[in-house]
Each structure stands twice: as C-alpha cells, then as structure tokens.
Simulated scan of single mutants.
Amino acid sequence: MNAAEGLGIKNIVPAYRSPFLQPNDILTGVSFASGGSGLDPMTARIQGVIWVPDQLNDFKAYIAKLNSITGDEEKTRSIISNAVFVISAGNNDIAITYFTNPARNTRYTIFSYTDLMVSWTQSFIKELYNLGARKFAIMGTLPLGCLPGASNALGGLCLEPANVVARLFNRKLANEVNNLNSMLPGSRSIYVDMYNPLLELVKNPLKSGFTSPTRPCCCAPAAPIPCLDASRYVFWDIGHPSEKAYQTIIPPIIQQIQQSFA
C-alpha cells in the first residue's frame, strides 16, 4: 500500500519520466522520486541518480504539461494547491554520503551536516511553495542503524551511533516543519515519523507477525537468493523495509495525512 492508494486516489503513482505516462496520470498525480537520491548533490552523484533540485525541474515541466491538458491556468493552480506533496529525503545523505565519504565527514560535524540537510529541505519546500504547492507531508528518516546493512555487522543488533544521527536529524526536521507553517502563508506542512513505527517492528517483530526483524529477505552476501516468504521479514534487502513492513506501518500515516489535510 502507498499513500495514494491509502487515500483512495489510485493504486500506483507512475514515474513522471515514464514513457508510458498518460494524460490522466498527469491529472491525478505522479512521482518525481529517484531511488538512491538525496538532498546533498554528492548523494545523487555517488548513486548515479536524479538529484532533488533536478526533480524540481521535472515538476516545473509537469506544470507546463498539466496546463496543456487542462487548458485553464486556474484549474492547474487548483490541482497543484490541493495536491499533497509527500517528500522523503535524507536517509541516503546520512547512511551513504556522510558516513562513507571523507569529503563530508571530515569537513562537517554531524551537527553541522544535519543543519545543512534541514536548510536544503527548507529551500526545496520554498521552491515548491513558490510554484503553487501548499500541502506537504515531510517524512523523517528510518532508524538507520537497524537497517540490515548496519545491524548485520553487529550480529543483528542496531548500530546505535547511526540511530543517534537519524534521531538528531529527525528532531531538527520536525522543528523546521513547524517553522514552515508560520513562514509560508496558506500552506500546511506535517512531519511524518518513519523512525519509531519501523523501530517498533524491529524491537517487537512477533507482535506484527514477523520472525526476522533485522535479517533481510534478499540480496545479502550470504543469502543472494530471495526468501520464499517475504512477509515474515521486516526488511526486503540490506537497506529497504519489506512490502509487509510498509503495509503494517502505513495505515496510521494515511490517517495522519487525511486528518491534517481534510
């Protein structure tokens, strides 16, 4: 289940760059995301994916396409202002770029780097606001130290220093979301906690029907072949929760979005 499905809009949100995109997709919502990207330009370069500001350029092109479909700038503005912009950025900046790249971890302390990440987020939201967006659901990072890529090095125990950094960024991001509400007239921003719901699955897996809280179903060096029943695993691979994990944690998030933007 994704947010659009949970909100009753459509089951799949297609990629904006998909060659199979249809006019109705433009009218009802698309995804500008690029897997592995981040707020930091270095994150996108390392992964070879589309940087967040370049995704913003895609959104500008989307507005032009939307205008051509509606034939009415007022209707276009209405669609954009009533749309919910779900934003998730920061996981890869911390887990990949900061912790593994001397160009970042020798130049910045984790305090100054997370400040920089929040600043990048603020600039991104302001750009969207200036283009007509008014409703923002901004997701915090996952418990990065519990991802199998980190926890497997400790025999399945969460790597607490990585979780400390994730919590630090999330706290700063939540505060910034409150600032955005007073800074951007007529807008509504909410902070979506992704950290604690996933951490709960890791700490108490049996409660939700999981038997493997930190061992991934797929693609670990010791187990390159996917498991037979992914629904028993909290994580699909070393860096991503399983579909069942997301299905478990997303209903309260959907409810939060519905109540916030009703």
Rank of each mutant, 00 (worst) to 15 (best):
G8K: 05
N11G: 00
N11D: 04
Y16V: 03
S18A: 04
F20Q: 11
L21F: 11
N24T: 15
L27E: 13
T28I: 08
F32D: 07
S34E: 02
G36F: 04
S37Y: 01
L39M: 11
D40N: 13
P41G: 00
V49A: 02
V52E: 03
V52P: 01
P53I: 09
N57M: 12
D58C: 01
I63F: 05
S68H: 06
I69S: 02
T70C: 08
G71N: 03
D72A: 00
E74S: 09
E74T: 13
T76R: 01
I79N: 02
I79A: 05
S81D: 04
V84T: 13
F85E: 00
S88Q: 14
S88H: 12
A89S: 06
D93I: 09
D93Q: 03
A95H: 15
T100M: 01
P102Q: 00
A103E: 10
R104Q: 10
R107E: 12
I110Q: 12
F111C: 01
F111A: 14
T114R: 06
D115A: 00
D115F: 04
S119V: 11
S119M: 10
Q122K: 15
E127H: 04
L128C: 11
L131C: 11
L131D: 15
R134L: 09
A137I: 02
I138A: 03
I138F: 01
I138M: 00
L142P: 04
L142K: 14
L142G: 00
L147T: 15
L147H: 05
P148Q: 08
G149R: 07
A150F: 11
N152P: 07
L154N: 10
L154R: 07
G155A: 11
G156I: 12
G156R: 01
G156K: 07
L159Y: 15
P161A: 00
N163R: 13
N163E: 02
A166I: 03
F169C: 06
F169A: 10
N175V: 15
N179T: 15
M183L: 14
P185Y: 08
G186C: 05
S187Q: 06
R188V: 08
S189R: 13
I190Y: 03
V192A: 04
Y195H: 12
Y195G: 00
P197V: 09
N204Q: 13
L206F: 12
L206M: 14
K207L: 07
K207F: 02
S212W: 04
P213G: 07
A220H: 05
A220F: 05
A220W: 15
A220S: 12
P221V: 08
P224M: 05
P226W: 14
C227S: 10
S231Q: 13
W236F: 06
W236Y: 06
I238N: 15
S242R: 10
S242Y: 02
E243F: 04
K244I: 07
A245I: 15
A245V: 10
Q255R: 14
I257K: 08
I257E: 07
Q258S: 10
S260V: 09
